[in-house]
Structures are given as structure tokens and as C-alpha cells.
């Protein structure tokens, strides 16, 4: 699936998107896999209360299932307007 990063999450991880091969059943499981990769991922995901997630372009929760999902995005709380 495609994993996208925005705002300071993108800056900390150092890329806007990547394709990830994963069997993670939920968003939270995907986060655990990403954190185990490298320090920059571990740091970016160190405080989940400061992050939001979208699954297939809809706001989602940490326990949202990933079966059949094409796109997951991680970003800080939004500041539009």
C-alpha cells in the first residue's frame, strides 16, 4: 500500500510517500512496523496524540483495519482556514 506523510511528519521521515509491503491488520500495527525501521520513523511516531491518520483519504482511528486499503496517510492535526 501507499503510505503518505504530510507537514512535519513528512519532514521528519524525509519523504512524502512510499510503497510499503505489509500484512499489518490495523493502523496501529503498521505504526509499530514503521517505528521498528529506523530512528527517524521512531521519532516521527513517538507521540501518537500529536498525529492523525487517514485511511483511503478518510479520517480514521489507530484501530482502523487495513484489509483492502490502498492508501494510508499520517499527519499532524489540520490547520486550514
Amino acid at each position: 500500500m501507499d503510505v503518505l506523510y504530510f507537514a512535519w511528519v513528512r519532514e521528519r521521515i524525509g519523504l512524502p510517500r512510499e510503497t510499503v509491503q505489509t500484512g499489518a491488520p490495523t493502523v496501529a500495527d503498521l505504526v509499530v512496523e514503521l517505528r521498528a525501521r529506523e530512528a527517524r520513523y521512531d521519532m516521527a511516531f513517538s507521540d501518537l496524540t500529536a498525529l492523525r491518520v487517514a485511511v483511503d483519504q478518510e479520517l480514521a482511528e489507530w484501530n482502523t483495519p487495513l484489509a483492502g486499503v490502498r492508501e494510508v496517510a499520517f499527519f499532524p492535526p489540520m490547520t486550514g482556514g
Binding site: 504530510f6 507537514a7 487517514a54 479520517l59 496517510a73 499527519f75 499532524p76 492535526p77 489540520m78 490547520t79 486550514g80 482556514g81
Partner: peptide
């Protein structure tokens, strides 16, 4: 749109 549209 301030808190639910993905702008930063």
C-alpha cells in the same frame, strides 16, 4: 474546514 480538511 479549520480542523477537518487536510491543510497545514
Amino acid at each position: 474546514l479549520k480542523s477537518r480538511a487536510p491543510f497545514w
